[in-house]
Simulated scan of single mutants.
Amino acid sequence: MCGRFAITLPDEAVAQLFDALPSNDLPEVPRYNVCPTTPVATVTSAEGARRLRPMRWGFIPHWYKSPTDGPLLINARAETVAEKPAFRTACRERRCIVPASGFYEWTKDAEGNRLPWYITRADGAPMAFAAIWQDWSREGEDKMEGPTCAIVTCAATHEMAEIHHRTPVILEKGDWAKWLGEEGKGAAPLMQPPEPGTVRMWRVAPAVNSNRATGEALIAPIKG
């Protein structure tokens, strides 16, 4: 699962990294506690050009009458994303990338307290989460329009499996074009857990348990 993450790079650096044209309405950075239903920067590709553009994190299927008409779909399971009615068309036609600096996961101690961990790439490079997106709009009191997205997850192995059984699909740079549909079909094999040694992790303070918490201290390592 991926329910919180951080993005600390400036928009210009992210746009340069992905060779994408940045929109002028991207969410402010740095953000150390990105939560579901908030806007996130995503990379899309169409007509030979990439864009860095904001989307609501929380995929809304086209049949929802309001954003809360069904479950909050922040993740899509790699094992079923190509088959589930909510996701299958997006998986085939609307794949995107969510850039991140790292993400959070939780374990529990003997008393049931939630213990947060921060996970990032061992090589210090930004993460590129595989994701899918969907435009959604409705009129009325709950009027809303715009793109929404979900991060693709898969079964965790190696280091990640020590703290959680799911992990975001972390794309390597050589796979970005394939995932974005720039190199034809065949993206399904990319939905795999990272290779051993790809990520590193450390305990962080419980402050991040609150979705209102913010600041660089959230990703600082603690003992224990």
Rank of each mutant, 00 (worst) to 15 (best):
V40A: 10
I219N: 06
E183K: 13
N113S: 12
I222A: 06
T198V: 12
G174T: 11
L21Q: 11
W117F: 13
I119K: 00
A131P: 08
K143E: 15
H158W: 12
M55L: 14
Y118G: 10
A90M: 04
R88A: 07
P27S: 10
G102F: 03
E195L: 14
I60R: 12
M1R: 14
G181T: 00
G140E: 07
E162P: 05
S210V: 05
P99I: 03
W106A: 05
G184L: 02
P116R: 08
C154Y: 02
A49I: 15
A76C: 00
C96Q: 06
L17Y: 11
T42N: 12
W133S: 11
T214W: 03
W133C: 09
K65W: 00
V204M: 05
E182T: 01
M55N: 04
V40K: 10
A220T: 11
D109L: 01
A86T: 02
Q192R: 15
Q16S: 14
T37C: 10
P99V: 00
A177H: 13
E139V: 04
A187D: 00
R138P: 01
E159H: 13
W179E: 03
A130G: 04
R212Q: 14
Q16Y: 02
N209G: 14
A128G: 09
G140W: 12
R56E: 04
D19Y: 03
S23T: 10
D69V: 08
W133R: 01
T120M: 04
K185H: 00
A125D: 11
M191F: 02
A220W: 06
M201R: 10
H165Q: 14
P67W: 09
L26Y: 06
P221W: 10
E28L: 13
T167I: 15
L171F: 13
L26C: 12
M127G: 02
A217V: 09
T80V: 06
R114D: 11
T148D: 05
I151N: 07
Q16K: 15
A90H: 02
